[in-house]
Amino acid sequence: MRRRPAEALLIDFDGVLRQYDPDAYPGFEQRHGVAPSALLDSGLTWGRLLPAITGYWTRQQWLDEIAADTGASAEAVAEWDAYRGRIDGPVLEFVRAARAAGRKVALVTNATDDLRQDLARFGLEAEFDAVISSAELRTHKPTKEFFAAACQAVQTPPDRCLLVDDTDRHIRGARVAGLSAMRWSGPADLPYLRAALSL
């Protein structure tokens, strides 16, 4: 039997809608004696990442822990953190097309406590029907509680929701929770996603 089109889009932020350019830190290591990748790797260590994305640490506490772990100066960490990426234009147009066609769209992301500030920085506050932040929810992808809250926020049953995310573990967790899910690999995925939403 042919699967019915999804009625709601749940879209990830980092790695899907927001991208980070690898050449955004020219001369950083020479100036500070530490590579940007070392700061990122430290921040993504689960013992530091989990309290940051579940709201138990502020973003500044997370940054302080990265500095303590790597020995980076406060100036280096501040410069690293000042670059907040860029919004992928075709993905944003896809979000807008989905909403224009009557599909509910939620931003669903593991984020630190400053997500709303980032959305304001990029002028994205009005681009979604709902924003589901792990720091605000106090639970993270891919827990069933996170996905249940996301589906409730768009008032759509899980089997009518489509998650787009760039992390395999989140895709698997969403499917366990009853959602359709597709791992994002780049703009070449957009035609399939438009078809999945009957756009």
Results as ranks from 00 to 15, higher is better:
64 D>S: 14
64 D>Q: 15
64 D>R: 15
65 E>F: 06
65 E>C: 13
65 E>D: 15
65 E>K: 10
66 I>Y: 08
67 A>Q: 07
68 A>C: 09
69 D>F: 08
69 D>H: 10
70 T>I: 05
71 G>D: 12
72 A>F: 12
72 A>S: 15
73 S>H: 01
73 S>G: 08
73 S>M: 05
73 S>F: 05
75 E>K: 06
75 E>Y: 03
75 E>N: 06
76 A>L: 05
76 A>Q: 07
76 A>R: 09
77 V>P: 12
77 V>M: 10
77 V>Y: 15
78 A>V: 01
78 A>E: 13
78 A>Y: 02
82 A>Q: 12
84 R>P: 02
85 G>R: 05
85 G>C: 11
86 R>G: 15
86 R>T: 15
87 I>Q: 09
87 I>T: 08
87 I>C: 07
87 I>L: 12
88 D>S: 09
89 G>F: 06
89 G>S: 14
90 P>T: 07
90 P>W: 11
90 P>L: 06
91 V>G: 05
92 L>D: 08
92 L>I: 13
92 L>C: 11
93 E>V: 13
93 E>N: 08
95 V>T: 14
96 R>N: 09
96 R>Y: 04
97 A>H: 05
97 A>M: 01
97 A>I: 00
98 A>Y: 02
98 A>L: 03
98 A>F: 10
98 A>Q: 03
98 A>E: 04
99 R>T: 13
100 A>Q: 09
100 A>D: 05
103 R>M: 10
103 R>W: 05
103 R>L: 03
104 K>V: 01
104 K>I: 00
104 K>R: 14
104 K>H: 08
105 V>K: 02
106 A>M: 01
106 A>D: 00
106 A>S: 01
107 L>A: 00
107 L>P: 02
108 V>Q: 00
109 T>W: 04
109 T>G: 04
111 A>C: 12
111 A>H: 07
112 T>F: 09
113 D>P: 04
114 D>E: 14
114 D>T: 14
115 L>F: 06
115 L>V: 10
115 L>E: 00
116 R>C: 00
118 D>N: 05
118 D>L: 12
119 L>A: 04
120 A>W: 05
121 R>V: 03
121 R>E: 11
121 R>L: 15
121 R>S: 05
122 F>G: 11
123 G>T: 09
124 L>W: 04
124 L>F: 05
124 L>T: 06
125 E>C: 00
125 E>I: 00
127 E>T: 03
128 F>H: 04
129 D>S: 07
129 D>H: 14
129 D>I: 10
130 A>D: 07
130 A>Y: 06
132 I>N: 05
132 I>Q: 03
132 I>Y: 01
132 I>F: 04
132 I>M: 10
133 S>F: 13
135 A>I: 14
135 A>L: 07
137 L>Y: 11
137 L>S: 13
137 L>Q: 13
138 R>A: 13
138 R>Q: 12
139 T>K: 02
139 T>L: 01
140 H>C: 07
141 K>Q: 01
142 P>S: 06
142 P>Y: 00
144 K>T: 13
146 F>C: 10
147 F>A: 11
147 F>M: 10
148 A>P: 02
148 A>E: 14
148 A>G: 08
148 A>Y: 09
149 A>P: 08
149 A>Y: 12
149 A>C: 11
149 A>H: 14
149 A>R: 10
150 A>I: 13
150 A>M: 11
151 C>M: 09
151 C>W: 12
